[in-house]
Design a protein around this nucleic acid. Structure first.
Lengths: 224, 224
DNA sequence: GATGAGCCGTACCGTACGTTACGGTTCGGT
DNA sequence: ACCGAACCGTAACGTACGGTACGGCTCATC
């Protein structure tokens, strides 16, 4: 927890899941960097050395190791706020573009070294103890994108462009078509690389497939 | 490694990734049980206590902790050899049934506590060190099912039931439609439960969606 | 210029765990 | 009956790491 359990002075204070100090942000960036480089051996000593701060400071700011990890996850989540997609005219073409953007953004996120490392840590944490890191990652990953995409889907339905009963089910199909085996393979260490062009292509294919399944008008199936 | 680096006597010997002794299998079952119950805290002492064997024996049989985990993964993989699907007449109906069975089997596997625990361990391992556990899990999971499903897809194409250029791409779409967000949610600790009926329903929906995308004849789209 | 808060660097403590060592027991072979 | 191999239970060792304590430095404030 940033500005931990009971901070005696309101110096760097703010709400609980809130803005870290610039210095604190630097520490969290160090954590992210170490996660990617060294993997699981995320030791407090290593973080302190990398961030050029003392362990005492780490514990004062974040409480304990779990608090540091939690703050790191939230810090990373706070900057993956890409794409707004406020309602536009919403014809078939703009809907398709929105979905493609969502798909490409999502593929970029899950294939980034940062996301992979973060998810690995969270999964490890979810496996043992009472760790809530998994839930936090889920909240800021899978569920966040769902919450942002569903309004788009429902606007598409309202505009007569899409047909489905269950928004959640439709989203999960989209999620599957886009992600396929990418995330699990990367998490398990498979040497799968996704370039920008590849992501754009896969996003387009997945979007077309989704429109084939859920579009009200016939779409050209992408039998790649 | 079962019967480790240099086994002085060929007592329980066999090939390297091969059949463990009944006693050794009991030990590996204990590891699997502990993985599910205790999560990450997979200590050698706990394994020895659970399996009623000495730590010395564990080290003699498996070399080190990594060897024990590797043997466990392979042991588990060796018994998930379900479904043969040798070529049959292969009309539209039997193809659909085969795909549905594949989908249901796969969903059952990835939602089983054993698979979740095993994948968590492998992902943790993939994140740190030189661990090859991730590759082993990938080999016996994602890639194994791909190798078994692709012939079915290609027979379907040969029979004029399916249309695709890239078998791998077609399989990955099927994989995504079936798995969607299930595995990542479970790995991250989400309380998602899949009953038999739910699995059967989801497998059918995913299969129909796949056939809509890749079937040569029109299929009824399942807009659930 | 003195004062005190915040922080860096490092030494230190306690514990958990991987790994090794050892005494005692069981059991198949001779 | 004897021998040796395999194995169990447990103690012991070394290390890594989370967490704490402390001395010294910097710097804003008065």
């Amino acid at each position: 927890m940033v500005t931990a359990t009971r901070s005696p002075s309101p110096e760097t204070a703010s709400a609980d899941p809130a803005e870290p100090t610039a210095r604190q942000a630097a520490v969290l960036d160090a954590v992210l960097a170490l996660m990617q480089e060294k993997g699981g051996q995320l030791t407090m000593t290593a973080v302190a050395r990398r961030a050029s701060c003392s362990k005492e400071t780490l514990y004062k700011w974040f409480g304990d190791r779990d608090g540091l990890l939690t703050a790191t996850v939230q810090w990373q989540a706070s900057r993956v706020r890409a794409g707004r997609y406020d309602r536009q005219k919403l014809d078939g073409s703009s809907l398709r573009d929105s979905l493609k953007d969502f798909a490409a953004t999502w593929l970029s996120v899950i294939s980034s070294p940062t996301s992979i490392a973060l998810n690995r840590v969270a999964i490890t944490d979810a496996g043992s103890r009472e760790g809530n890191l998994g839930q936090i990652v889920l909240e800021n990953g899978r569920f966040a994108i769902g919450a942002r995409l569903k309004p788009v889907l429902e606007e598409g339905r309202a505009a007569g462009l899409l047909a489905f009963d269950d928004t959640e089910a439709a989203f999960r199909s989209f999620f599957g078509l886009v992600g396929r085996d990418v995330q699990i393979r990367l998490l398990l260490g498979d040497a799968l690389t996704l370039g920008k062009a590849e992501i754009a292509r896969d996003a387009a294919i997945a979007t077309d497939q989704f429109l084939t399944l859920y579009g009200r008008t016939a779409q050209k199936p992408a039998a790649a």
